[in-house]
Design a protein around this nucleic acid. Structure first.
Length: 202
DNA sequence: TTCCGGATTACCT
DNA sequence: GGTAATCCGGAAA
């Protein structure tokens, strides 16, 4: 059985390598409502010298968590209405992170559905196929019950959000360009599990 | 102090 | 395929 990744796991790799190593690992959210979990199938790397990175310019209240030690959780608000989840990487004070873009739901799927339904602003109740639950950075944040106030700056080694060692190891990885950016668009810093249907975009 | 645009998603045609 | 929803950090459009 797989086990909780220790601090040393996050410290021992550079950001790009960590983004690749996180593929296949289990992302687990433990809350009073129940446990939800999924396999990480898609990630993106954000480096400190990369204009698309939030820490590219300087440390602010918003991006402060990115400058914490490797294994810190960085959550931020995007487009004023969604949140994204990052794993802080590299040396403390550097400001690099791995964006978790998609997971394959494995546990607590009903709870995930409920959270997604509750957080979707719509007149009628949406119906989600399993692959629509977590196939995007803001979607998995909703499904796992992650919030800015509860999780930003927390620790993956000792908090309610954690990552276990890879449960999926036998796969092909694709490296390609990142999604939704206007800067650094040509850098091949997006990684996903080839053929996995829970990836946000092929 | 003001204004622009973003590591997105859902719903419309 | 196009766009509305909706907040805030950073540049000064």
């Amino acid at each position: 059985m797989n086990s909780l990744l220790p601090r040393s796991f996050y410290e021992q790799y550079d950001t790009i390598t960590l983004a690749q190593k996180l593929l296949g690992c289990d992302l687990i959210s433990q809350q009073s409502a129940g446990q939800t979990a999924g396999i990480i199938v898609e990630t993106e790397a954000y480096l400190t010298n990369d204009p698309a990175c939030h820490a590219y310019r300087k440390k602010t209240t918003r991006n402060a968590a990115m400058f914490g030690p490797a294994g810190t959780v960085y959550v931020y608000l995007i487009y004023g209405l969604y949140h994204c989840l990052n794993v802080v990487s590299a040396a403390e004070g550097l400001g690099e992170a791995v964006l978790i873009r998609a997971i394959e739901p494995t546990e607590g799927i009903e709870l995930m559905e409920q959270r997604r339904i509750n957080q979707t602003k719509s007149e009628k109740t949406p119906v989600f196929k399993p692959e629509q639950l977590c196939n995007g950075p803001a979607k998995l944040v909703q499904a796992l019950g992650i919030s800015l106030s509860d999780h930003n700056g927390t620790c993956l080694v000792s908090g309610s959000l954690s990552i276990n060692s890879a449960s999926l190891v036998d796969f092909e990885m694709v490296a390609t360009t990142r999604i939704g950016l206007t800067q650094g668009v040509d850098l091949p810093y997006r990684f996903y599990i080839k053929g996995n249907r829970f990836v946000s975009r092929k």
